[in-house]
């Protein structure tokens, strides 16, 4: 792997520090943004989670080297991701679709 060569590692050390700083900035941003009202509470949640997702992607991609990982590992993660979405999605779905609420107009 090219990324394992000493030069590449030396180069990425700088990147780690930049990303670390970026994460701190984004943390501050999350906090700041939570005191601003974006029209509805769901919007606030969306914005907060969006920033969290960006931070998480940075940690994943850079610190955990997911920007250049082996195919297998992506498969594991996609699988877990899909199932996690299914879990949460269907939980929410089941909570919204309660008889009498006419969610889908019947």
């Amino acid at each position: 792997m090219a990324s394992d060569s000493p030069e590449a590692i030396r180069k990425s050390i700088k990147l780690y520090i930049i990303i670390g700083a970026g994460l701190l900035v984004l943390t501050a941003l999350t906090v700041a943004v939570s005191y601003v009202h974006f029209g509805s509470h769901s919007m606030n949640v969306a914005v907060g989670l969006l920033i969290a997702c960006i931070k998480a992607s940075l940690v994943g991609a850079i610190f955990m080297h997911l920007n250049h990982e082996k195919r297998l590992i992506y498969i594991f993660l996609v699988l877990a991701g899909v199932l996690f979405v299914a879990l949460m999605g269907l939980f929410i779905f089941s909570l919204l679709d309660i008889p009498g609420q006419n969610l889908f107009g019947y």
């Binding site: 999350t30 606030n44 949640v45 989670l49």
Partner: peptide
């Protein structure tokens, strides 16, 4: 965890 529990 931080935004979900502390901020939102």
């Amino acid at each position: 965890l931080f935004p979900v529990l502390y901020l939102l």
